Amino acid sequence: MPLTMYRLSIPAFTRGFSALGGILDKAEAFASDTGIPLAELFEARLAPDMLPLAGQVQRASDTSKNAIARLTTLEAPRFPDDEQSFADLRGRIAKTVAFFESVKPADLEGSESREVTLNFTKLKVSFSGEDYLLKFVLPNFYFHVTTAYDILRHKGVPIGKPDYIGSLD
């Protein structure tokens, strides 16, 4: 099977969110077992200028779903960043994955050469679709998933590399 933009994106995002959901489940169980308030985990951050756990999940969702929209003619669903609980975060993950389930391989055909332009505060950057996915989207997505993992690990949640990697089948 050839390597396609679909195979490089949708399965990676779906797998990442599956692992993230499992990590959130373990965090909730940890809080219940230890008596740590869920809010302490929900609002935890690695550094004062970094987003808390909820923000990491929100950015992973936004990065991935907006990338698919930019690479196709599909419209990404919009979610307000108003999650207040672990259940809300799992709901956001579920809605994001539901969007990915609606994407067909044909939707991404030819997107490797599609021009994608991002406007940052003082910088405008244009990419080919392939470079956008490989050099910006996937690193950004994994940064936020990894940071969510790191926040919970730092707070003592008993998770390890197999929780992050997920199933190998």
Rank of each mutant, 00 (worst) to 15 (best):
M1K: 10
T4G: 02
R7C: 13
L8A: 14
L8M: 13
S9D: 07
A12C: 15
A12Q: 15
G16S: 12
S18N: 09
A19C: 14
A19E: 07
A19N: 09
A19L: 05
L20K: 02
I23T: 03
D25N: 15
D25S: 12
D25Q: 13
E28R: 14
E28C: 15
A29L: 09
F30E: 04
F30T: 06
S32V: 11
T34L: 10
P37T: 03
L38P: 04
E40M: 14
F42Q: 01
F42L: 09
F42H: 10
E43C: 08
E43S: 15
L46S: 11
L46Q: 10
M50E: 10
L51C: 11
G55T: 11
G55F: 10
Q56M: 10
A60P: 15
A60E: 02
S61H: 10
D62H: 07
S64Y: 01
N66F: 09
A67L: 03
A69I: 06
A69L: 05
L71R: 01
T72W: 01
L74Q: 00
P80R: 11
E83V: 00
F86D: 02
A94Y: 05
V97R: 05
A98W: 13
F100D: 04
F100E: 03
S102V: 00
S102Y: 03
K104C: 01
P105S: 08
P105D: 06
A106D: 11
D107P: 09
E109P: 02
E109H: 05
G110C: 11
G110W: 13
S111Y: 09
E112C: 03
E112R: 00
V116G: 03
L123E: 15
K124T: 15
V125P: 05
V125F: 06
V125T: 11
S126I: 08
F127H: 13
E130G: 04
D131Y: 07
Y132T: 03
L133F: 06
L134D: 01
K135S: 12
V137N: 00
L138Y: 09
L138P: 00
F141Q: 01
V145Q: 03
D150N: 12
I151N: 01
L152C: 15
R153I: 09
K155S: 13
G156K: 09
V157N: 06
P158L: 07
G160Y: 08
K161W: 14
Y164E: 12
Y164T: 04
G166W: 05
S167I: 08
S167R: 15
L168W: 11
